[in-house]
């Protein structure tokens, strides 16, 4: 399986990574190198094998569904590149 430039552009779009036209071919080459490497897994017979969900057998804990935190808008937004009155701001998304 080999990725072409169009597929690389599509993956970049899904990953929200801007990629210049000129960078597509080199990125395709790198990704194909990695995909060729992982293709070794095709040799492994996994018939009847369950996919791993946890290395250590453990039951997920339950907790009460209740409010334990809140009222920290200022703390939550203090690292935002652009915040106003306790809100995150983004470019306009509705026309």
């Amino acid at each position: 399986m080999s990725l072409d430039n169009a597929t690389v552009a599509k993956i970049a779009r899904l990953a929200r990574l801007r990629i210049d036209e000129a960078a597509l071919a080199p990125m395709a080459k790198e990704l194909n190198g990695i995909l060729d490497f992982v293709a070794q897994l095709e040799q492994v017979d996994v018939t009847g094998v369950a996919p791993m969900t946890s290395t250590v057998a453990m039951k997920l804990r339950w907790r009460a569904d209740e409010v334990t935190d809140g009222g920290n808008a200022e703390k939550v937004t203090q690292n935002a590149p652009n915040a106003e009155s306790g809100f995150f701001t983004v470019p306009k998304v509705i026309e």
């Binding site: 992982v38 897994l41 492994v44 996919p51 791993m52």
Partner: peptide, 13 residues
């Protein structure tokens, strides 16, 4: 890819 890898992971464990 992903599901296959998680199955091989079971074999490694």
């Amino acid at each position: 890819y992903y599901l296959k890898a998680q199955k091989v992971r079971t074999l490694i464990l």
